[in-house]
Amino acid sequence: MKNLILLVGFSIMVVSGVTGQDEVHVATRTIEKRLEYAQGDELEIRAEKAVINISTWDKKHISLELKLISKHKKKETARSELDLLKYDVSTVGRKHIIKNFFEASDKFVRVKGNLLTEFTLKVPQGCDIVLTNQYGKLSVTNLNTNMSAFLKFVDCEVTNGTGLLNIESSFGNIYVSGFSGSLKARLERSNLELISFDGIADLDTHYGEVSIEGGLFKNLAVNGIRTKIDFATSRIEAYNYDVKTTFSTLRVPESIGSDLLLDNESQQLAKNFKINNPRIKLHTTYGSINLKQIFSASKK
C-alpha cells in the first residue's frame, strides 16, 4: 500500500507553471553590426539564455542584430540590470565569434527582473556555423550551409534548407522539417521530430522520443536507449529494415507482420524488400517502436 501511494505520488508530480501576467518596463539595447565574409570564414555563436534566429542569404556579409533585454516592474531597475548583460563580437583568424554573457562586479549578484538576449543573424551561403546555447530557443530557416549546434534546455526548430546538420541536445525539443542533406544528432533526455527529411540521418538518443514522418532516406540509423521511436512512411517497401526493441514492444504494418520475431526480451524485424533499398535501422531499449505506413498524398 505504501509503495502504491508512492507510485501515485510520483506519477502526479507536477511543477507549478505560469500563474498569470503583469506589466513590466522593458529596457532594450539594440546592436546592429555588419561582419564582412570571405569564403572559408566561420561563424561561432556562444550564447546563453538566448533566442537565436538564423537564416542564410545570398549577400557576402553577415548581418547581426543583437537585442539585450531587461524586464522589471520598475523602469530604473530594468535600466540598471540591462548593464549586467554583455556581448562581444570579435574575429579570430577566419572565425567571427559572437557571444553574450552575464557580468557583475559581485559574483553573488542576483537579478531582480529578467534578462534575455535575442540574436537575429543572416549568414552567407556556405558560411559554416558553430553554435552553443542554453536555456532558450533556436530557430533556423532556409539553412544553406553546415551547422553544429550544442544545446541544453533549448527548443530548436530547423525549417527547410540543405547541408550538414550536427545537433547535440540535452533536455531539448528538436524539430527538423523539410531539410535535405545529412543529420547527425546526439540527444540526451530530448525529443526529436523529423518531418520530410531527405538524406542520411544518424541518431543516438538516450531517454526521449523520436518521431520520424515522410522523407526520402538514403540511410537512417537510430540507436536508442530508453527511447520511444515512431517511424511513418508512405514508401514502406522502398526500404530495408533492421528494427529491434528490448524490454518493450514493436508494432509493424500488417503487410509485414509475419516477419516479426519475438522472444522473451526483445522483438525485432529484419526485412529486405530489394537488395539496393536504403537501410532503416531502428534499435532501442525500454522504449516501444511503432513502424507504420501513411497514406496521405501530401506526405512523401
Binding site: S16, Q21, D22, E23, V24, V26, A27, T28, E32, R34
Partner: peptide, 20 residues
C-alpha cells in the same frame, strides 16, 4: 554604416512566475 547601438524603453506584459 550598419554598426549602431541604441537603448530604448517600452512596456510589455510578462508571465508571472511562482514565487517558489
Amino acid at each position: 554604416d550598419t554598426d549602431h547601438e541604441r537603448v530604448t524603453f517600452s512596456r510589455n506584459m510578462r508571465a508571472v512566475v511562482p514565487s517558489d
